[in-house]
Nucleic acid binder design. Sequence first.
DNA 1: CATGAATGAGCCTTCATTCAT
DNA 2: TATGAATGAAGGCTCATTCAT
Lengths: 222, 222, 222, 222
Amino acid sequence: MSEENLLDAIIAQAKLSKKQTTKQRKIVETAVKLFAEKGYANTSTSEIAKFAQVAEGTIFRHYGTKDNLLLSVILPFIKDAMPTMAESVFSGIMTQNTACFEDFLRALIKNRLLFIKENKEIFQVVVKELLYNDELRKELQPYFFENIMQRISKVITMFKERGELIDVSSDTLLNMIFNVVGSYFVSRFVLQLAYSDMDEEAEVENLVRFIMDGIRKPSQGM
Amino acid sequence: MSEENLLDAIIAQAKLSKKQTTKQRKIVETAVKLFAEKGYANTSTSEIAKFAQVAEGTIFRHYGTKDNLLLSVILPFIKDAMPTMAESVFSGIMTQNTACFEDFLRALIKNRLLFIKENKEIFQVVVKELLYNDELRKELQPYFFENIMQRISKVITMFKERGELIDVSSDTLLNMIFNVVGSYFVSRFVLQLAYSDMDEEAEVENLVRFIMDGIRKPSQGM
Amino acid sequence: MSEENLLDAIIAQAKLSKKQTTKQRKIVETAVKLFAEKGYANTSTSEIAKFAQVAEGTIFRHYGTKDNLLLSVILPFIKDAMPTMAESVFSGIMTQNTACFEDFLRALIKNRLLFIKENKEIFQVVVKELLYNDELRKELQPYFFENIMQRISKVITMFKERGELIDVSSDTLLNMIFNVVGSYFVSRFVLQLAYSDMDEEAEVENLVRFIMDGIRKPSQGM
Amino acid sequence: MSEENLLDAIIAQAKLSKKQTTKQRKIVETAVKLFAEKGYANTSTSEIAKFAQVAEGTIFRHYGTKDNLLLSVILPFIKDAMPTMAESVFSGIMTQNTACFEDFLRALIKNRLLFIKENKEIFQVVVKELLYNDELRKELQPYFFENIMQRISKVITMFKERGELIDVSSDTLLNMIFNVVGSYFVSRFVLQLAYSDMDEEAEVENLVRFIMDGIRKPSQGM
DNA sequence: CATGAATGAGCCTTCATTCAT
DNA sequence: TATGAATGAAGGCTCATTCAT
């Protein structure tokens, strides 16, 4: 889980992923499902092999180690989570419908919600392992900050300059937003708490509103 | 991790814990530390025995199974986290300084922050295992909701009736608050992200402010 | 030792046994020897592995559990002990040389004696475990009665109708015969008591004579 | 299970048994029950301690080892089984009602049946362990032969001289009788097979008749 | 005499990984 | 490339036995 540089791994991964055989795809799919269900540590390679209808040796022929299989599950997701967010999301979102920060926030949340809904199981794996596996977290953290956080940070700074946001450091603002949105995703898709009776649209709206305005009732007379 | 009722386990545990040996204490302490560091699944009983300077058999004489050792680590924390919160916190807080919901919220956060700071490692274990271990989560959830959530929910309802909070269901309000505060605790004590340059006092104040007022700058003229 | 049906186990076993590895054969051979020598409960899998010159894991790759290894030793013997006896023995014996019950009995004893002499060690294991292991006995008993006892019972009934045997229920007759023959096999092959100075031929003859005529000296004058 | 001489053990045992505390009796009673139920090898000392409501240490204070506890269970039974049989049975029986061997045999069987019925569980333990435990068997065998077999052998010889029994060596006769009677006891009290619908009286009578006369129907005309 | 905490060797089993086919 | 038999280290757990109290 440690050795070398993560980016190298990503690149190596990319190379391999070109010629993915049917069996390889089956292996990764099965691994995702099982890791999501029971966690990486509680899933054995023999189990993966059985459900993927593949010999156990085949897994190791392609991925070398179980750790590496985990990376092969997680990295493409991370790779996708970031640049997608970066490119299509930002530039795309920023230009048109984003008269104000609230619009940007709403668009961002909707965009990520869609992405995660389509990758629910991998999201579960990533969150669980990021929390559980210190090594992995340490490796991914800097990469994560540089790509996502900084980018959003810039947007926030921009809107702050426009005077739309309160006078708190951009990092702090970013953090608050990230926490609220992140904990929403986690409790919904990982913990799978069914607390709310709102529909999704309303939930997003509520999230946005909460972030923008908090919970205090505006004094009537004003 | 499944069988039986959790409350029974708690009771049984309480009974046993009366005559705790020095070795028993040592075992639990070591288990907490190692579980926090590397997670339950990645910590072996032989490792615990080694660091606790105890024969491996001794662990099983007292706790029967590794699973049960985990419970012996987690349950006292849970038991403390809830009633303490319930009693001392609520009644104590509610009477004096709680002219408004904001004061209640601030007191609550400070109180729990103190508690978690004093039990940092166990908190890590609890969070990690709650996320990682589905069985455990399912067992603890109802117990958790009934004790904590409902109680806070009542307070929220009360303040809503006083007209201090926006017109959103108490459950939703509770959730939003819980997410913000919870994710603060998690990212600070579990993920150990050192994002902020604020001191603790300021962080709490910022949290309270964020929950109450959001991030939108009040329009100047108003 | 309990779950499921024994016949299923036999069938599953049969399927697996098609492609038996050299190592597998070695494992079973060693297991038979050691179980016979010291009993199932006093033989460790590591010991079996050592003597079979196999990694301990190999045992479990093929047999899953120690219990299952025992079954893999016992079941083929049982399977062979019964149908063989049933078919070849009965029909074979019955037709030609069996003018009377005595001839049938003699042929049966000789046939089984041969079989057990060729499977002495497994016979020891079976007897010991059948006596020692209640679960196993309960599982095997019905199977045993239906296949062996009933079949012999029919023969006995037939000869009774011919008027060759005394007027006692067939079951009781069967039991007496089985006890005499069985205890002969057990004391000779399991307890390994060397009481007799007769040769085998004479022993069988004595057995037959005893069963047929008892020990009372015929009154001279008659 | 091996060291030293068995007779010494018996004597030592006798000494101890004089001042048997309540706890000691409880321990032996429990041990008998559990050994009978699940076999020596599958019964743990902690289990015995639990059911006997005694600390585990207490068992070892009195009996030193688990092996020795087994001996403490078995030896008194053996000691009783033999002399009792020897004295009261033989001399007692022989004089009065034993006009013929059949009477002697009947009396002997009835006497032992009574004894075993009163010591059913210990009998189970003895039989199972004698079969399972080679060491134990080797130790007890000579002792057994010298005390029981020889004594009965003399009686048989006597009746042979009277011309009541067929011309087969006394040892062989003894063996045949022992096998029939023994296997009856074992299948009834150890295997607990409920094959027969006769009452006990009839069963004994049948046993005697079988031993004396076999199963062949006497030819009518003679 | 009785206790029960403590021990550590040994047990059965799992599992990631290797390698000959 | 794919297989699956084989491995052996490591894991959780049991148990007879010891010993301080």
